[in-house]
């Protein structure tokens, strides 16, 4: 019995290791079915392709090369494919959107860098050389995202931020269930994600535990951004400034007296020594002049 138990345990362990190995060696993307079937809610036009091209040159071209030129950066591993190639073009729009959004291995995630609409523009540009491509439009109504109201409130006792996501439909207020919610704090070069990604509960509420040591501005204000991703309502973004950070007002780095600082901020000992030496030399010179005058006077007598 025991032996059998041990045996099954080792088999399980072996299977698990094999699975992990397979996962890490797997060259392909693991895209959830509901993301695969996602489509753009606006048709791809000349304008969207042009917008997409601008974004492509800025964010993708350095690794993937130009479309159809097969000049991607071959030194990288795994090698980034030419995005006009068959392998990429066989994918669904949802696949491409997911890949751009999440990234994998050396491919960065553009979730917080490129807005949702712009990511669809990128997909439209990637499709632009494919003559066989026929676009499938999303059945979702993009104007629905405007109905959503995101509320943020902070509980200073538990140090938790409560996010309420509700939609004002004609039938009344509906709570968004199981929507993906991200919380970010604005920093100088980008957004810092706070806590992990949460999903709203049945009341459309998600709680984020907030760090107690995150610096804010002089008064402790932090600009917070919440992004919500929902199947029906699309992507919604809301921002709010809350006074929940550590007030930070550090002095400038040239404040202290130092030998490398400007003349007015030189160290006291340096200023004192310098002045004393100057006075000393001056006094000595005066003493010489005075003595010479004395000698001259003596000579006259």
């Amino acid at each position: 019995m025991l032996r059998k138990y041990i045996h099954s345990k080792t088999t399980l362990a072996f299977l698990f290791t094999a699975l992990v190995c397979l996962q890490s060696f797997a060259q392909d993307w693991d895209i959830p079915a509901n993301k695969k079937s996602k489509n753009s809610y606006f048709p791809f036009t000349k304008e969207t392709i042009e917008d997409g091209e601008g974004l492509f040159l800025k964010n993708c071209q350095s690794c993937h090369g130009n479309l159809g030129k097969d000049n991607s950066l071959k030194s990288l591993k795994p090698t980034p494919p030419d995005l006009a190639g068959a392998k990429t073009q066989e994918r669904t729009d949802g696949d491409l959107f997911y890949i751009i959004t999440t990234g994998r291995l050396i491919m960065p995630s553009f979730k917080t860098i490129i807005a949702e609409e712009d990511r669809w523009d990128l997909v439209s540009y990637i499709r632009s050389l494919n003559k066989k491509y026929i676009q499938v439009l999303s059945k979702n109504d993009p104007s629905k995202s405007k109905l959503v109201v995101v509320k943020m409130s902070f509980d200073s006792l538990s140090y938790k931020l409560r996010v309420d996501v509700k939609a004002n439909e004609k039938e009344g207020v509906i709570a968004l269930k199981d929507a993906e919610v991200f919380l970010f704090a604005e920093r100088y070069f980008g957004r810092l994600q706070i806590d992990s990604t949460h999903h709203t509960n049945n009341d459309g509420v998600a709680f984020f535990s907030f760090p107690k040591d995150l610096p804010g501005d002089k008064n402790g204000n932090i600009n917070l951004v919440v992004t919500v991703g929902d199947e029906v309502y699309g992507e919604i973004e809301a921002a709010k400034s809350l006074k929940i950070g550590v007030p930070t007002d550090k002095p400038s780095l040239t404040e202290k007296r130092a030998i490398w600082n400007t003349v007015t901020k030189a160290p006291i000992w340096l200023m004192l020594t310098y002045t004393l030496i100057l006075l000393g030399v001056g006094a000595f010179l005066l003493y010489i002049v005075f003595s010479l005058m004395k000698i001259k006077k003596l000579g006259k007598e």
Partner: peptide
């Protein structure tokens, strides 16, 4: 191209990766 550098503001206690743009 390899995500070597992070740059940011010490007062904000945040640095952003130049390649992945992750903060």
């Amino acid at each position: 191209p390899n995500g070597v550098y992070y740059f940011g503001d010490e007062n904000e206690d945040a640095v952003t990766n130049g390649t992945t743009k992750e903060t």
